[in-house]
Design a protein around this nucleic acid. Structure first.
Lengths: 246, 246
DNA sequence: TCCATTTGTACGGATATCGCACAAATACGG
DNA sequence: CCGTATTTGTGCGATATCCGTACAAATGGA
């Protein structure tokens, strides 16, 4: 375990949307590192071109994006599914996305936006909590029960809308249903006015490696008709991709 | 300079689209690090959850994206311009983007896609060479001449299409024109069938901090009519943003 | 203006890291 | 099938690196 690397990465992650510009002391407090250590990390990052400092405050530079995007490109999944996603979106007239699980969050790896229904713009790299999203539920359902429970326990289950399910046991029960039926429908648990339906994407061995979903404005379809109307297209794509995903 | 951090970041950057799965020795060769060092870095990254290894090969995990997106979110620019970009795209019926310069490449920080004209999907974090893109030219033109020349000299000027300008002096001359007229129009230098027009985004002090562009399919508008038709909207947005960008 | 508090920087001691060297495994040709 | 050549994985000592303290500088409040 090479400590300096761990510290540096913690420092980078310490730069969030809320704290884009931080002094050495800010970073030290945010990361729990000693001020002297934080300083060395920041100076190193600056020297390598990952950070810039205007005397007092440090900022990350676009160069940091090389780190993440190298990984996005690394995911053969993203490039592989994009054309299918585009076609699916066009065919159904709704936005579709593919995501993977990272701890308790879903990370969008590919997306074909059809129209704007959400207040926040989702794009590759965006994150949403797993417990209240259709793709998140599908991905959690693919884990062994104890692992799924652990991930739910590790994060704040917040009621984002009046409809959000936040009780851990209720969520676990829901995961059983998802596991059995092979898909999940979410009704306005992330944001009012937005529903979604998701299915897992399986590789050739049948292991869940990602999730595929459609975002559906409430007015488009009555809740109970959603599976009948959209599931066939999703499952068709699921089957096609199952053959090509390694 | 904290060496371990520098090594680790080099290792992460070593994972490209071409080399998504690498053994310890692969990484050692790609980065120029000692095998033992590469091993320590990879094991550390794995322990921290940034990498996964299946016995022999290492892969980056989606967690690495946190680093990049931390930076994207860090750019207040991205969130700030997104609504304007959406509106602009809708109004004109064309894709618009905002990017910043990193070395010799433009990095997309926000984008509103209207239709698919490019073979490659652009998204926040995507990169294109500066010398052959309208935003790249605009951003290079904002640098002192010697710096612009240095950046051109530092990278391979490849003819991506028959129309791509690759002569450094011709490019420098073009930058002068861009500097004088305040915008740039590119005719199929990145990809056949695609034109684009870009203007700089200025902060309140008049410094160029990013570039704004429109991607235009060739059939939409004759080349010579592009400025008259699209420049007013771009410059209006440029002026509006100038007041709000710090 | 002065004091209190916070912030940034230098230095020596301790320790974790580096890269060598060796061992194990694989590949290949005779 | 065996021996050689090449690649890969890992332990260990020397050494360069990093940690935390202590001090200086700057800020802010009274």
């Amino acid at each position: 375990m090479i400590a300096g690397l761990a510290k540096g990465l913690r420092v980078i992650e310490g730069f969030t949307a809320d704290h884009p510009r931080q002094s050495i002391s800010d970073v030290a407090e945010a990361t729990g590192l000693d001020r002297a250590t934080a300083r060395r990390c920041l100076l190193t990052l600056a020297e390598l071109g990952y950070a810039a400092h205007d005397g007092k405050y440090f900022t990350l530079t676009p160069r940091v994006l090389r780190l993440g995007t190298a990984c996005l490109a690394t995911l053969p999944l993203a490039q592989m599914v994009q054309p299918w996603l585009d076609q699916l979106s066009e065919e159904l007239g709704e936005s579709s996305s593919v995501s993977v699980l990272d701890e308790g969050e879903v990370v969008y790896v590919a997306r074909a936006a059809q129209r704007k229904v959400m207040s926040i713009a989702l794009m590759p790299g965006s994150r949403l909590p797993a417990y209240c999203t259709s793709m998140g539920r599908v991905l959690l359902a693919a884990l062994p029960e104890d692992q799924a429970r652990a991930r739910l326990a590790a994060m704040a289950l917040e009621a984002r809308t009046p409809l959000t399910v936040t009780d851990p046991e209720a969520l676990m029960a829901r995961l059983s249903v998802v596991r059995a039926q092979g898909y999940e429908v979410i009704d306005q648990e992330v944001e009012m006015g937005l529903r979604s339906i998701a299915v897992p994407l399986l590789d050739a061995h049948g292991r869940t490696i990602a999730a595929l979903n459609l975002g559906l404005p409430v007015r488009d379809t009555p809740l109970e008709e959603i599976p009948a109307r959209y599931l066939p297209a999703l499952e068709r794509l699921q089957a096609e991709l199952k053959r090509v995903l390694r």
